[in-house]
Amino acid sequence: MTDTTTEDQEIKKNVLSRMKRIEGQVRGIQGMVEAGKECEAILVQVRAVRSALQSANKLILKRYMLRCYADAMKEGADEKEALDKFIKVLTGFIEG
Rank of each mutant, 00 (worst) to 15 (best):
M19H: 03
Y64L: 12
A52C: 04
E75Q: 07
E10A: 01
L59D: 10
N14I: 07
F86R: 00
R50P: 15
A82R: 06
R27L: 03
C68K: 13
K85M: 12
D8P: 11
R47P: 01
L90E: 08
L61I: 15
R21S: 12
A48R: 08
G36Y: 02
Y69E: 12
L59E: 12
E81D: 08
T4G: 00
F86H: 01
Y64E: 12
R63Y: 11
C39V: 09
R18Y: 03
A52W: 11
D84F: 09
E7K: 00
S51Y: 14
G76Q: 14
R18Q: 05
K88I: 10
T6L: 07
M73P: 02
V33N: 03
I87Y: 09
L16W: 00
R18F: 02
R50A: 15
D8C: 14
G76N: 13
Y64V: 10
A48V: 06
C68A: 15
A56Q: 09
I11P: 03
K58W: 06
A41K: 05
E75W: 00
T91P: 06
T2F: 07
E40N: 12
L83E: 12
E7T: 02
E79P: 02
V46R: 11
K20L: 12
L59G: 08
E38D: 14
D3E: 03
E75S: 01
S17L: 03
A77N: 06
E38T: 09
K20R: 13
R67F: 11
E10I: 00
V44Q: 06
N57A: 15
K74W: 06
A72V: 13
C68R: 13
E23K: 06
E95Q: 15
E10W: 03
V49D: 05
G96M: 13
E10L: 06
V44F: 10
L83Y: 09
A35M: 03
D78F: 00
I22W: 03
T6E: 05
L53Q: 04
T4M: 07
L53S: 00
A82L: 01
L53E: 06
L61V: 15
F93K: 15
M1I: 13
Q45V: 01
D8I: 13
E79C: 06
L59M: 14
I94W: 13
A48K: 04
K13P: 04
D8W: 07
M19P: 10
T2V: 02
K62P: 11
A48F: 10
D8F: 10
K62C: 12
V26R: 04
T5K: 00
L43Q: 09
A82Y: 06
G24I: 00
R63T: 09
V26S: 05
I11C: 01
V89T: 13
A48G: 06
L83I: 15
L43D: 08
V33T: 02
E75Y: 00
V44S: 10
L90H: 05
G96P: 10
C39K: 04
E10C: 05
K13F: 11
R63C: 08
I29Y: 08
L53M: 08
Q25G: 01
Y69G: 11
G24T: 00
Y69V: 14
E79K: 06
E34H: 05
G31L: 01
T91K: 15
I11E: 00
R50D: 14
T4D: 02
K20H: 13
R18E: 01
Q30T: 09
K13D: 01
E23Y: 11
D71V: 03
V49L: 01
R47I: 13
